[in-house]
Computed example of a mutant assay.
Amino acid sequence: MAYSSNYSHILDPLIENNYQLFMIERRIMMDAKTFIRTFKEDEMDLSLTDDPKKNTKVWQIPVYNAGEPC
Score class of each variant (00 low, 15 high):
Y7V: 12
R26N: 05
E41C: 08
Q20N: 05
Y3D: 05
D31L: 09
E41F: 08
N65H: 07
T34I: 13
S4T: 08
T49L: 01
Y7A: 14
K33V: 06
I61M: 06
Y3S: 10
F22P: 00
Y7M: 14
A2C: 13
R37P: 02
E16D: 14
A66D: 06
E68D: 13
I61N: 02
N6R: 10
I24F: 04
D31P: 00
K33T: 12
E16Y: 13
H9N: 15
D42M: 08
S8R: 12
L11N: 08
K57G: 03
S5P: 06
L46S: 05
R26V: 01
P62H: 01
F39H: 04
D45P: 00
F35T: 10
K57R: 11
I24Y: 01
Q20W: 11
T49W: 01
M23F: 11
K54Y: 12
N17Q: 11
Y7N: 07
N55I: 08
F22D: 10
K40F: 02
P62Y: 03
R27Q: 03
N65A: 08
Y7P: 01
E43R: 15
Y3K: 07
I15Q: 10
C70M: 11
A66M: 04
W59K: 01
K57H: 07
D31M: 05
I10N: 15
A32M: 12
L14A: 11
K40A: 03
N55W: 02
G67F: 09
K57P: 01
A66H: 05
S8C: 12
D51A: 10
T49H: 05
T38I: 08
Y64F: 15
D45A: 00
N6F: 15
E68Q: 07
D50A: 04
T49Q: 07
E68C: 04
K33R: 06
D12N: 14
P69F: 04
L14G: 10
Q60N: 03
P13Q: 15
M1I: 11
D50P: 00
I24A: 08
T34Y: 13
I28L: 15
K53H: 07
Y64C: 13
D51G: 01
L46Q: 04
E43A: 14
P62F: 02
S5E: 15
W59D: 06
T56C: 09
P62A: 00
K57S: 07
F22G: 04
S8F: 08
G67H: 03
P62T: 03
S47F: 05
K40H: 00
Y19T: 14
E43D: 13
D45N: 04
I15T: 08
F22C: 06
Y3E: 03
D51V: 07
I15Y: 11
P52V: 10
A66F: 05
P69M: 09
T49R: 00
K53C: 05
Y7T: 14
M44V: 14
T38N: 09
F39S: 00
E25N: 09
